[in-house]
Design a protein around this nucleic acid. Sequence first.
DNA 1: ATGCCCTTGCGTCAAGGA
Length: 258
Amino acid sequence: MRIATFNVNGVNGRIDLLIEWLAATQPDVACLQELKSPDDKFPIQAIEKAGYGAAWHGQARWNGVAILARGCEPVETRRGLPDGAGDSHSRYIEAAIAGVLVGCLYAPNGNPRPGPKFDYKLAWMDRLIAHAGALLEADCPIVLAGDYNVIPTDADVYKPERWADDALFQPEPRERYRRLLGLGWTDAIRHLHPDDTIYTFWDYWRNAWARDAGIRIDHLLLNRQAADRLVAAGVDREVRGWPHASDHAPVWVELRDA
DNA sequence: ATGCCCTTGCGTCAAGGA
């Protein structure tokens, strides 16, 4: 079972590229972020035509998350993290597919820092940690996939000093990411490729893609039951080089059948 | 310190992204 995560940066503007990627790599589950689409404009017809069922949580202009399932309908189990009173952002959706629970998340960027956006980022991550801890009570494989907007370590950025002042690379969000791992979640890419240089995002600015000036911020975290089945993980780097690409590349894991 | 590039929306610029 292949589970992928892809920040599409606009699901309607990028629908042709999304369909092309689905056809080329045929993930069983695809978590999408930054739909930038209200619910009634989500391109469900094109996605169904490509052979996928979907659950989505959109919002006009910004944010928005969706879970696609190949050949079936994902069974939605949650939209929004717990304790979301007053939080209008569409940043979390969760669904069960073929015995695997999949959480699709889009964590806040947090810039500029300091300020209310950075405070919101940390508070949102605290809610994610609480929910991720509660999920560990379940006795099934779970994957928390998405754009965490956290560069975990110096090894995950082409030039650490360049990002030193950025919200994605601050001690507070990095400590929260480490705390997630400490609960019992496995960073699939780092687990299988401990020494490789792996990026998932390249800025549109400064010719970043051509220079391979990237950062790793899209992650798939696995609970023990999922990690026990992990056989492969990677980044579909070439998608970042396609015409009219998102600034993120898709990331995926392969889990063997139970 | 800032721009760089790109998306969306009732838009001809602003806001957000990272």
